[in-house]
Design a protein around this nucleic acid. Structure first.
Lengths: 154, 154
DNA sequence: TTTGAAATCGTGCTTAC
DNA sequence: GTAAGCACGATTTCAAA
């Protein structure tokens, strides 16, 4: 993992539809070694997948909610069940287990408040939760999937 | 935007490296009309871009932090400056303006606690903030970029 | 051992039906 | 909407540094 690798990753994070020729030219390599590096990065799992990003507003998915959850049950089994439950809920874009006073944090995307209410009811009916608190987003100011490779030394 | 469009988007959200032939077969269309639909969805901006998703752990980016911010200044000018500032900070993956007691919410990715501390100091030095509260993630349980198209009627 | 040039082969994209 | 053809880009092979 050197500077050239990082440059390649930087480019692919921004636009995965770039051709090998374009990437090779940008990083100052010819096609074959550039292609081999990309293959290696995919093989190593550094590049996990290539996906299409959709515009939520254009699809009528206007509401983003950050949900903080506290639980009484901190067992492995409870988490396993919670994880499985959430995996089956497509509205939940992200779920993190947290340090500190809040146990879990979810990011949820739904069309509107009515849909969120329905989601919320489904969630609290599905599994016992001690406390659930919702914060609603008014505006998406910045949003990216690009990781900060500047900070990376690996 | 019909069932076939949604099916196409569903597939591309999961894997943007799929060939037109594969997508066409999955949705029960031949290649040309399938290709035309994808072109239209891109032209409309429903498909915003195609990107590579990287594995943060393999890059040594192990720490995700949710940062809640309160400000005293609720002017347009303040937000414009804050937005510009944050746009230039690659550690900030997401920034939302919120309803309720918290004004802004950030998701930040850094290698470790020392890097977060450095980021935090840079942030509070750059712009006046009334209150900043950080919640640290211990484990990423679920994480996707796929929007819930089931909920969409548009 | 690693790089670059060229041939192959599978796609995307275009045209005609 | 289907089917056929052209053109381009991704792989592979092979020669050279």
């Amino acid at each position: 993992m050197d500077t050239v690798d990082r440059k390649i990753l930087e480019l692919l994070q921004a636009d995965a539809s770039l051709s090998i020729a374009e990437i090779a030219a940008s990083v100052g390599l010819s096609q074959t070694p550039c292609w081999k590096r990309i293959q290696r990065l995919e093989g190593q799992g550094v590049i996990e997948r290539r996906v299409a990003l959709l515009n939520p507003e254009k699809l009528g998915l206007g509401l983003t909610v950050f949900v903080s959850i506290e639980t009484n049950d901190h067992s492995e089994a409870w988490l396993a069940r919670f994880a499985e439950l959430v995996a089956a809920m497509p509205e939940v874009i992200e779920l993190y287990r947290m340090a500190g006073d809040v146990d879990y944090m979810l990011r949820v995307i739904v069309p509107d408040m009515a849909s969120y209410d329905a989601f919320y009811k489904r969630l609290i009916a599905a599994i016992p939760l001690k406390n659930v608190s919702s914060r609603f987003a008014m505006e998406r100011v910045k949003s990216t999937t690009a990781l900060p490779l500047d900070a990376v030394t690996a």
